[in-house]
Design a protein around this nucleic acid. Structure first.
Lengths: 226, 226
DNA sequence: TTAATACTTCATTATATACTTAAGTGTCGA
DNA sequence: TCGACACTTAAGTATATAATGAAGTATTAA
């Protein structure tokens, strides 16, 4: 057991791999080239490291044409990353993190979908309008909901074809309620970023709801996020 | 920031250092020689590694005569160790391993408090009886709970005065749920050991629930641990 | 006082693995 | 269909650092 433990830890500990894992904390998937630039190394090298991370099941890849998008394979990974980060000396978490937590609590990306208070509200809104409903361990989209998602340019059938789970509930650590995850949650967040409803803060998982977003949330989800 | 992160992770990742950190998970402090035997290496080598871990503020030393006792410098360290351990692949698969892991999964110490199935059940029991309740990122003790803890000889006010966090939720890698950590969790485990509810297995983090303990868990926590 | 124990320090060696150079796939657009 | 691009694979090199050997400091017990 200690051997496996040590393997994982040293897998995370290499400078280049640490940078990769760090970069992914913002919830986006990145291509090998992007990560090579970020980590300031060559494509061959980053490729080798990414390969190791995938083999260790810390990352997973998704091919899209000639691009390969890398991301965490599961939510435990960013959780462990943050646990290690909390060990950085002189990280006076008491004062600083409490302040930082505030907006993060409110609205943040969790892996690749929306979490925090806004994420939960949004999911509640979808449930209330019966665009989605809960079924055992997943969410299902109603007929009405499918039309609604389509009106936002989100193709339900296309998402269902993906290997990853379609619409799973993800427990929110700050709200203690479920928010919408899976490919549907990801597609929704993507849409919202593209349309400028929310904006990513630099180097953080905090999301900012724009004025446009506030209006849109009210119009489409019937929720007041203020 | 990524550099410090990588330094910490690779500090944990070295095979010998990983063994050290792993051994300390049972909550006891160890001497350099003991750790050298455990990690199957020479005194010089273990000394060098221990030195690095102390410099990185992951461990602290206490001299007692010609012995030097090493232990975690703070509670965040074992938390991070557990978070990394939760990434070990195939943790919930393969028949054989399930059998091997059984006692450890069932009941074990996590640094200085109780984890595993029993630890989670116990925490759930306390929540259900409303002796503790969750508040943001920590547990709080109710008035009723305070009286209950006092009846076990645990002084809440005394524990709250300690520097370390009082009652924080700690994610359990085998159960994927939170169990009670912090000084309250430690005091509870201590009480349970003193009263002979649980017993430490030699050279392992496995805890054995005694017959007396089974009865006591039912009486005090209203849970059936069998 | 002496010898043994517990542990550390320093200089040297050994080795694992990250990186480089070179040569490939497969995909896309002109 | 060609060339540029995104990325991977394979073989060889370089380097960081873990392990060793030798020597040294406290501490205890005889």
């Amino acid at each position: 057991m200690e051997n496996e433990f040590s393997e994982i830890a040293s897998m995370i500990g290499d400078p280049v791999r640490a940078k990769i894992l760090w970069a992914l904390l913002d919830g986006r998937a990145y291509t090998a080239t992007e990560l090579a630039v970020y980590a300031d190394t060559t494509p061959q090298n980053i490729s080798m490291h990414l390969n190791k991370l995938v083999n260790a099941d810390l990352l997973s890849v998704e091919s899209q044409g000639r691009h390969r998008y890398y991301n965490y394979s599961r939510a435990d990974v960013p959780y462990a990353i943050e646990a290690i980060a909390s060990l950085i000396p002189g990280n006076n978490l008491t004062e600083r993190k409490l302040v930082e937590d505030k907006p993060v609590r409110y609205c943040r990306s969790c892996y690749d979908h929306l979490a925090g208070k806004v994420g939960v509200l949004l999911t509640d809104g979808l449930l209330k309008q019966q665009f989605i409903y809960k079924k055992e361990n997943s969410f299902e989209v109603s007929g009405e909901g499918e039309a609604w998602f389509n009106s936002l340019g989100i193709d339900i059938n296309l998402l269902k074809k993906q290997k990853r789970s379609f619409a799973r509930p993800c427990l929110d650590w700050s709200e203690r309620k479920h928010h919408l995850a899976g490919s549907l949650g990801a597609a929704l967040l993507n849409r919202m970023i593209v349309d400028g409803w929310v904006r990513k803060e630099k180097d953080s998982r905090t999301m900012i709801v724009t004025r446009k977003g506030e209006q849109a949330f009210f119009d489409h989800f019937k929720i007041d996020v203020r």
